[in-house]
């Protein structure tokens, strides 16, 4: 038992990205979100919706969305993956809205400018997800 305890704590610590300071993270409000899959997914979906709504009115909404989904991640690496996921979601939402408006083909024909939008979506979302390393 005495050998399993520290090992187990170590794993948890890795997931939380806080090293030996996991005791501190246990006190933050997001701990249940990170630990409980149900809460985790609820948070991800809610965070994505809030992020998309904000992103539809201001570019920094992408940062907020990335941060929201990133904060739910167990560690920084996964937070970044979540940020990329949110960025992809934002791109899909954007392409979908263009398709709905009948302008998708013309936007894709814009080449580099369309790619710039994709890069912005991914870049800002990942930037936001880095907040996981702070909180």
């Amino acid at each position: 038992m005495s050998r399993r305890g520290p090992t187990s704590r170590r794993r948890t610590t890795d997931r939380e990205g806080g090293g030996a300071t996991s005791r501190a993270s246990r006190h933050i409000p997001l701990a249940p979100v990170r630990a409980d899959p149900r809460h985790h997914w609820l948070w991800l979906v809610s965070g994505s919706v809030v992020g998309l709504v904000l992103a539809s009115v201001h570019p920094l909404g992408l940062v907020v969305g990335g941060a929201l989904v990133g904060l739910a991640a167990a560690d920084l690496f996964r937070a970044v993956l979540s940020g990329i996921g949110f960025g992809v979601l934002a791109v899909l939402a954007w392409l979908g809205s263009l398709w709905w408006a009948g302008g998708l083909g013309r936007v894709l024909a814009m080449g580099e400018l369309a790619l710039l939008a994709v890069a912005i979506a991914l870049g800002l979302s990942v930037l936001g997800s880095l907040a996981r390393g702070v909180l």
Partner: peptide, 18 residues
């Protein structure tokens, strides 16, 4: 300026498509 022009969803450039 670039973000306000080209950010997906909110970018002013894409508003013209909708």
């Amino acid at each position: 300026g670039y973000l306000e022009q080209f950010a997906p969803l909110s970018g002013s450039v894409w508003q013209t498509a909708r």
